[in-house]
Amino acid sequence: MNSRPTVKSVCAPSENVVAREIEGEMILVPLTADTTDADAELYTLNETGKMFWHRLDGKATLAEIADALAAEFDASAETIAADILGLAGELAKRSMLTVRDP
């Protein structure tokens, strides 16, 4: 069971997800259920979500990822950290992310 991530958490894509970039969009397929229903259980990430996903290397904390994204977007690291915590929480809840706390 994945815990709720914090800014100090280090996250990585879990083995329970297939992530494929197709025509610029990142599509995530959770494999937790026995059968993946193409009608109901797929997720797409937009451009910024994709940048977040690519930074999930199992080394950087979410705070560090927020700092890196803040350098590329017109938003503060605090704002982005709050946003990616929400997204990471949703992904972890669906077992698509592993969460490691220090």
Binding site: A38, D39, T48, F73, G86
Partner: peptide, 24 residues
């Protein structure tokens, strides 16, 4: 083609959308 639905579209705050992906 099949429909692809994203349930978290309704769960992630709208304010997240400028920075972080949400479903569509």
């Amino acid at each position: 083609m099949v429909r692809l639905s994203q349930e978290w579209r309704h769960k992630v705050k709208t304010a997240c959308s400028p920075y972080v992906a949400y479903g569509k």
